[in-house]
Write a protein that binds this DNA or RNA. Structure first.
Length: 574
RNA sequence: GGUCCUGUGGUGCAGUUUGGAGUGCACGCCGGCCUGUCAAGCCGGAGGUCGCGGGUUCAAAUCCCGUCAGGACCGCCA
């Protein structure tokens, strides 16, 4: 026996003449006189209007239980703006279950209060329809993902929350051990090593909706703790992984939007993404692609263009851009590492810009043709090392043309054939682009030692609207290849044993070929919910400085707790 | 670690450029009136450490320095 018979927002004309009981919060009170008042009662399904004859003591956000009779509203008083606008509850018995202080901010979707206050009073904020919608949308996504993986034969396995700290990757959140003072657990940045162990353990197909933590600085799309769909499968290749992940993402999308994305999802090589979009997470919702200009200026007199690589982008209709804006863009380009930014305002017969006097007529004509410029357009170009040119222009492209992340549909795209290494460190050693267990591309194995930077890997990212949703790879399961990668990275056998010994040991006992993936559920849900910030789809998120205004975390702990852990806190640096 | 933006009754904002009385708008709150509203309406009222500290000045919400908090971004996030 529950306190209610119905939910507010679900009542309609079909319920006319029923005597119903609803529970909820006072969304608004419109008091006409001592003997006529309207109370809108809100629960997570919506609001329903209750005609109450004495409402003076029913204030905003009071928690009420109202029993009343459903009737059609009198002629001329129907409210077409709300789903329950055709009916109302009359002849109401009102029970005050709980009184309430006036809320710190309006509990509506119409205005947004300051986020600190919203987070401090998150329990009030969550009453807003938008937040309830986001929570429920997220639950739908989780459930669709689970169903999809279950249907594809994956088994859910939980992995430890307290694990050993490994030096790779992001900074670990660390938990002191009381039983072994001076030793620490780490919260998982990823279940990576455990899921590979599960493959060695014969699990065949594993998935998990995993909570993870990384002690790095926050962003609109990054929290200290976050949620990922994590999956791994044995005896599969890259295409299999793309297929089962695509299937689950499609199922989640369909559960929310009602529309199933076309499968298979588009793929693009990393090289293509870098060349055309200057990014490994290309936003393909708009054009403004990077145009190769190196041949155009092969023999140029212009010093600024005497560089290994020149690329440009066409900004349509911005030929009248002001000097201020150009200076801002130039500053941005420099911030991204460029030496400068070349710009050309496209006029009818000529180009206007700081470099035109150094360019031949032929070069100017070819430049216009190469980018497809028309009078009134703007051309931006960067000359430098290829890698730098790509990223600088890629970022300028986003700065100039990128719509909000949730606009223009869902552009899922797989980026494949990532390089195995993304440059070299100070000691000249290659830096792994993914992680050191990533399988090189079979066609490139020959080049591993001779030209490591050109070796592709069997690593792949899923990107949507310029957001990296997730990444994965085929893993190395052969000791000889693993050994070659380690030695390229300068990790000798002893060190490898010290760092990943338990995984390498496991592989000695029969490792199946395996591959996997993980994608961020916070990001997926945010985009599906039309939010550009993942905090809006997390019930209790943290601020950019990692604080929770509601609970006060992080906070100092008692001396007694420190003593038990054998810890001493240093005085703050001055 | 860095760059930029923001901080003004409970909420959202204007006022800061060009210093001159806490000056204004909307919502909310309290009281009153009001029998068909729906962000009800009308009348009245209360409510302020202009984030905090210091400086300049006859005078600071406004200018300067520092600091705290929030946000966007760079670095960082294999």
């Amino acid at each position: 026996m529950t306190l209610r018979t119905d939910y507010c927002g679900r009542l309609g004309v079909d319920d006319v003449d029923r005597r119903v009981t609803v529970c909820g919060w006072v969304a608004s009170r419109r008091e006409h006189s001592e003997h006529l008042a309207f109370v809108d009662l809100r629960d997570h399904t919506g609001v329903v209007q209750c005609v109450v004859d004495h409402a003076h003591d029913l204030r905003s956000e009071y928690v009420l239980r109202i029993t009343g009779s459903v009737r059609r509203r009198p002629e001329g008083t129907v409210n077409p703006n709300i789903p329950t606008g055709e009916i109302e509850l009359h002849d109401c018995d009102v029970e005050v279950l709980s009184t309430a202080e006036p809320p710190p901010f309006p509990v509506t979707d119409r205005t947004d209060a300051d986020e600190t206050i919203r987070l401090k009073y998150r329990y009030v904020d969550l009453r807003r329809p938008r937040m309830q919608r986001n929570l429920r949308l997220r639950a739908k996504v989780n459930s669709a993902i689970r169903r999809s993986f279950e249907d594809q034969g994956f088994v859910e396995v939980e992995t430890p929350l307290l694990m050993v700290s490994t030096p790779e990757g992001s900074r670990d959140f660390v938990v002191p051990s009381r039983l072994k003072q001076g030793s620490f657990y780490a919260l998982p940045q990823s279940p990576q090593l455990f899921k590979q162990l599960l493959m060695v353990g014969g699990t065949d197909r594993y998935y998990q909706i995993a909570r993870l933590a990384r002690d790095e600085d926050l962003r609109a799309d990054r929290q200290l703790e976050f949620t990922q769909l994590d999956a791994e499968a044995s005896f599969v290749d890259q295409d299999d992984v793309l297929e089962f992940v695509s299937e689950s993402v499609a199922a989640a999308t369909e559960a929310v939007t009602g529309e199933r994305p076309a499968l298979p999802m588009a793929t693009m090589t990393w090289e293509d993404a870098a060349e055309r979009f200057g990014s490994d997470k290309p936003d393909t919702r708009f054009g403004m692609e990077l145009v190769e200009l190196t041949p155009v200026f092969a023999g140029t007199e212009a010093r600024a263009f005497q560089a290994p690589c020149i690329k440009g982008i066409l900004v349509e209709g911005e030929g009248d851009i002001g000097r201020n804006r150009l200076d801002t863009l130039t500053d941005l380009a420099k911030q991204f590492g460029a030496k400068g930014l070349a710009w050309f305002r496209v006029r009818d017969a000529e180009l206007e810009g700081q470099l035109t006097k150094f360019l031949s007529d032929d070069e100017q004509t070819k430049l216009r043709e190469a980018v497809g410029a028309r009078p009134g357009d703007l051309i931006l170009a960067v000359a430098d090392e290829r890698r730098l040119v790509r990223t600088v222009l890629g970022r300028l492209r986003l700065e100039l043309g990128r719509p909000p992340v949730y606009e223009g549909g869902l552009n899922y795209i797989w980026v494949v054939d990532f390089p195995l290494f993304e440059g070299v460190d100070d000691a000249g050693r290659p830096i792994p682009a993914h992680h050191p267990f990533t399988m090189p591309h079979p066609d490139d194995l020959e080049k591993m030692e001779s030209d490591p930077l050109s070796v592709r890997s069997q690593a792949y990212d899923l990107v949507v609207n310029g957001w990296e949703l997730g990444s994965g790879s085929v893993r190395i399961h052969r000791a000889d290849i693993q050994q070659r990668v380690f030695s390229l990275l300068g990790i000798d056998p002893e060190e490898a044993q010290a760092r990943f010994g338990f995984l390498l040991d496991a592989f000695r006992y029969g490792a199946p070929p395996h591959a996997g993936f993980a994608f961020g559920i916070d990001r997926l849900v945010a985009i599906l919910a039309g939010e550009d910030n993942i905090r809006e789809v997390i019930a209790f998120p943290k601020t950019q400085s990692g604080a929770d205004p509601l609970t006060g975390a992080p906070a100092p702990i008692d001396q007694k707790q420190l003593d038990e852990l054998g810890l001493r806190v240093l005085p703050p640096k001055s």
